[in-house]
Design a protein around this nucleic acid. Structure first.
Length: 611
DNA sequence: GTCGCTTGCCAC
DNA sequence: AAACGTGGCAAGCGAC
């Protein structure tokens, strides 16, 4: 095993150093590794490049961007057309492209973070951690030294002096580690049959970078207005509760529990850890008392204000939020989005989604994969009746309820239990959990599960096959895993082999989504309009000027996303009407929201909700 | 003051 | 036999 930490690390401080670096660049190597150090995490919200590093097996070069940025660009231009390796390419490439005119050739990019994540997503993908594991155990030592030095000097990544040896030496090791990691991981990808999954990740990376750069336009005055209203409402509720029930802080569960107990309310449910009485939404709604309702309303308004509107106000730059999209956010290959968390905006009311608006002269479209996880379940299970029903365009939950109850038109309740049972299968839930989430007695849940298994024996067979395969691999290799169609390795935690079913379905759905992004982005008209993905939904922005053209673009996107060849079931996509606000997709007229929300509680002398 | 844990809640 | 999966985020609160 090579020991990259003994490799020469050099800081560029003079024109002589520049020349030595350019000489070094002439040497033959299969790939040039590159990394950056920055002041923060988001190039679109003001964070800047500090260092650009290049490396191979022989050396790591550290270029202070402020003084010697031109040299970094010179290196990139001279190397252009040849392979480059990064560890988390969208990050470094976005930072560099944000501060100069050089444009990377994404088809030449290798990404070691994508490699490791496709092979094992259960462990840290941080470069130093992976480096210590696979290349040199001392790889994380430099990080500790830097951390100590930064603590002593009270520095952050934005302020630590470039010439501090702990800083630039730490930085210079990274491209060398990346270089060795690529060498280590490429054969492993081949061996594991995971190359297709990796290549999809690499192809997707540029789309992610593009979406981050584009960002989403936000109606700031609206956010500000909503935030102010909600905060004022919270204050009113606080004052009301303090006055009537001496409950000083509606945000403190301990204080609320004390106040409720003083009112003679007896709590029973415990929290998950069992340490305290639970006071969650379920408990609150089960208590018929004005204070309980006030706590509930306070929570809701707090949540809307602090998790959503305040974040939008905080993260917007010139009216646009550029969230951080983590392409490999979840172990299954799903993406996650933060600062702000645009994948978790409430759907119960349109209030928050109404904050998102298209750019001037544009409209939004929401493209949604229809019931993709249920469809993939049918695909993997090879369940003929399910597959037929899907092909015939039937709603799967209604179909299931029809079969299970022998009726043409199932009741809402019958469809509901069918739906919950389907999802319980996808998630690996047992009878108890199903009974809880579907809100039916244990025996009803059990009875329906039995009917479900009788109706769809393929599903049961699929689940036991997956678990079986996982277990036998565990016996052989020490860990249970399955692979998605493109080869992504999905490992189970010990004792949780049942979760492999979910990982396979969720991971495959994630692959479908990434494939869709890549295919959409291949069309320049559509790439510009890609704004966001929410697991099975893509938000697209299209010029509004010509109604025919915009409808054509939206339909083009829909057709590109659909897949009728790779699975036993069609992946079908529904396209929304053109939207002037994201909230339009929820269908509820905006002016009704106020009424609906404030009609919740009518009997208490509490302040009225502003929304 | 910061950090980490707990609790709760938003989405798919 | 039975086992719900993946995330992000805010506030309270005790420890340092």
């Amino acid at each position: 095993m090579p020991i990259p930490l003994d490799t020469r690390i050099e800081l560029v401080e003079s024109t002589a150093d520049c020349n030595r670096l350019l000489d070094w660049l002439e040497r033959p190597r299969p790939v040039l590794a590159c990394d950056t150090e920055t002041t923060g995490l988001n190039p679109h919200t003001g964070d800047k490049l500090r260092l650009v590093q290049f490396g191979d097996a022989t050396a790591g070069w550290v270029i202070p961007w402020f003084q010697w940025g031109g040299l970094a660009v010179e290196v990139l231009e001279r190397w252009h057309g040849r392979r480059m390796a990064f560890h988390n390419s969208p990050f470094d490439i976005s930072f560099i492209e944000n501060e100069c005119d050089y444009r990377f050739d994404w088809s030449m990019v290798d990404d070691t973070r994508a490699m490791i994540h496709v092979l094992d997503s259960t462990r840290s993908t941080a470069l130093k951690m992976v480096g210590s594991r696979l290349i040199d155990p001392r790889a994380s030592a430099g990080e500790m030294l830097l951390k100590n030095a930064m603590g002593v000097g009270k520095w952050t990544f934005a302020t630590v002096p470039v010439k501090l040896p702990e800083y630039w030496a730490y930085a210079g090791v990274d491209p060398v580690l990346t270089y060795y990691l690529r060498e280590d991981l490429l054969p492993k990808l081949l061996e594991a049959n995971a190359m297709n999954a990796y290549q999809l990740e690499v192809a997707c990376a540029r789309v992610i970078a593009s979406m981050q750069r584009t960002g989403m336009r936000v109606d700031l005055p609206y956010c500000d207005q909503m935030n102010t209203k909600l905060l004022a409402y919270g204050e009113e509720l606080q004052a009301w509760a303090a006055d009537r029930y001496s409950c000083r802080n509606l945000g403190s569960n301990a204080a609320c529990i004390r106040a409720l107990e003083l009112e003679g309310i007896v709590l029973e449910k415990r929290t998950k850890s069992g340490k305290q009485y639970a006071l969650d939404e379920d408990v609150l709604l089960g208590i018929d008392h004005p204070l309980s309702r006030a706590i509930h309303r306070f929570r809701k308004s707090q949540k809307l204000a602090s998790s959503y509107f305040q974040n939008l106000l905080e993260y917007a730059v010139q009216g646009v939020v550029h969230p951080s999209i983590n392409q490999m956010g979840a172990r299954t290959g799903r993406m996650s989005i933060q600062r702000p968390a645009l994948q978790t905006l409430p759907k119960t009311s349109r209030t928050v989604r109404d904050a998102f608006i298209p750019r001037e002269g544009h409209l939004l479209y929401s493209l949604d994969c229809q019931a993709i996880e249920m469809r993939l379940l049918a695909h993997f299970a090879g369940e003929p009746s399910m597959i037929r029903a899907i092909r015939e365009g039937k709603d799967l939950h209604t179909f299931t309820a029809q079969l299970a109850y022998g009726v043409d038109v199932p009741t809402k309740g019958q469809r509901q239990i069918a739906k919950h049972t389907g999802f319980a299968r996808i998630y690996g839930a047992g009878t108890a959990k199903l009974s809880l989430t579907a809100g039916v007695p244990l025996d009803v849940a059990r009875e329906f599960q039995h009917r479900y298994d009788d109706l769809f024996p393929g599903v049961r067979g699929f689940i036991s096959r997956v678990t079986q395969v996982g277990m036998s691999r565990k016996a052989e290799l020490g860990y249970a895993y399955v692979q998605t169609p493109l080869g992504r390795v999905q490992r189970a935690d010990p004792g949780k082999e049942y979760a492999l079913v979910n990982y396979l379905i969720q991971g495959t759905a994630a692959e479908v989504m990434k494939r869709q992004l890549v295919d959409l982005a291949a069309d320049p008209d559509l790439e510009r309009g890609l704004l966001l993905t929410v697991h099975d939904e893509i938000l697209l922005e299209v010029s509004a000027e010509d109604p025919e053209r915009r409808a054509e673009l939206a339909n083009r996107a829909r057709v590109i996303m659909e897949d009728r060849t790779n699975f036993h079931i069609p992946i079908e996509v529904e396209c929304s009407e053109p939207l002037t606000r994201w909230g339009d997709v929820l269908g509820v007229p905006a002016d009704l929201v106020q009424e609906v929300n404030s009609a919740f509680y009518t009997d208490d002398e509490q302040p009225d909700s502003p929304i």
